[in-house]
Amino acid sequence: MITVEAPDNSKAKAATGLKAAVGILEKWGASGEQGTAILRVSRSTYARAKRSDPGWEVNLDEDQLTRISLVLNMHAALRIVFDNPENLYGFMAMPNHNAYFEGKAPLELISQGGILPLYEVFKRIDSLRGAQW
């Protein structure tokens, strides 16, 4: 019996996710340094994702994929909450005086590099959408 295996395109999928996350971070106003800390990737990988070279592939670990997922899901939640681009893309850079943020912008907290602040900010943003899914 002949078996045919599907090609492993996980590196291409990882590159697509990384490119999307980098694009979102750029729209949020994140610097390159912040973006590399949030996604835990090298400056060269971040710059390559920003360029969106066709056919580019990248090998990412589970932590990096989780970070990309959190950024994409924060963006999805913000798209539900806000209709206007100023809030959709500006919210992450706005000082927030709610519990946990203590006057800091969400972008400031998630750019510290830890996965826990990234997850905590995601949970709080996700809760804004309420039952709107």
Rank of each mutant, 00 (worst) to 15 (best):
I80Y: 00
I68D: 07
I110A: 04
R79C: 14
Q64A: 13
P7I: 04
F82L: 04
E57T: 10
R129W: 05
S10W: 10
Q112S: 12
N84P: 05
M94H: 13
A77F: 02
V121L: 03
Y119N: 08
H75E: 12
P7H: 14
A14P: 06
L128Q: 03
M92Y: 00
P95A: 00
R67Y: 05
I110E: 02
A131N: 15
T16W: 05
N59Y: 07
E120R: 00
A77Y: 03
T16R: 13
T45R: 11
R43A: 10
L118R: 01
I24W: 04
D53T: 13
A20R: 12
H97N: 05
V121N: 01
L109M: 06
L70Y: 02
K104T: 02
F122R: 12
R40L: 08
R79M: 10
N87A: 12
K104P: 00
E26H: 10
A14H: 08
T3C: 01
F82K: 07
A12C: 04
A20L: 13
R79T: 05
A47W: 04
A6G: 07
V121Q: 01
N59T: 15
L25M: 08
A21K: 02
V71R: 13
K123V: 15
Q64E: 10
E33G: 15
L128D: 05
T16Q: 13
L107V: 06
V121R: 08
R51P: 01
L116E: 15
G29F: 03
Q64R: 09
K123A: 11
G130A: 15
I125M: 03
L18G: 10
G17N: 12
E62T: 11
Q132P: 05
N9I: 06
N9L: 15
S52L: 11
R43G: 09
A105C: 07
Y119T: 09
M92C: 02
L78R: 13
N73L: 13
N9T: 15
L78D: 02
N84W: 08
L25P: 00
E108G: 01
I80A: 06
I110G: 00
Q112P: 01
L88S: 08
S44L: 08
L39N: 04
L25N: 03
L39V: 09
A30G: 05
K11R: 10
P106F: 09
S127V: 02
W133E: 13
E26F: 06
Q34S: 06
Y119G: 15
F101L: 10
A76T: 09
E108I: 01
S69V: 02
R124P: 00
L72S: 14
I125W: 00
P106N: 07
L60E: 01
D63R: 15
G35C: 00
L18V: 03
H75F: 13
S10I: 05
R40Y: 10
Y89E: 09
T36Q: 11
S52I: 10
V71I: 14
N59L: 12
L118N: 14
A49W: 06
G32P: 11
S69A: 12
L39K: 00
S44H: 11
A105H: 03
G90M: 12
G130L: 07
D126F: 00
A77M: 12
A14S: 08
E102A: 12
G114F: 03
L78T: 05
T3W: 13
M94C: 06
R67Q: 04
Q34T: 02
A6S: 14
K13I: 13
W133D: 11
A6Y: 13
Q132H: 14
A99S: 08
N9W: 11
S31F: 04
E108S: 01
V121T: 04
A93D: 07
I38G: 05
A15G: 05
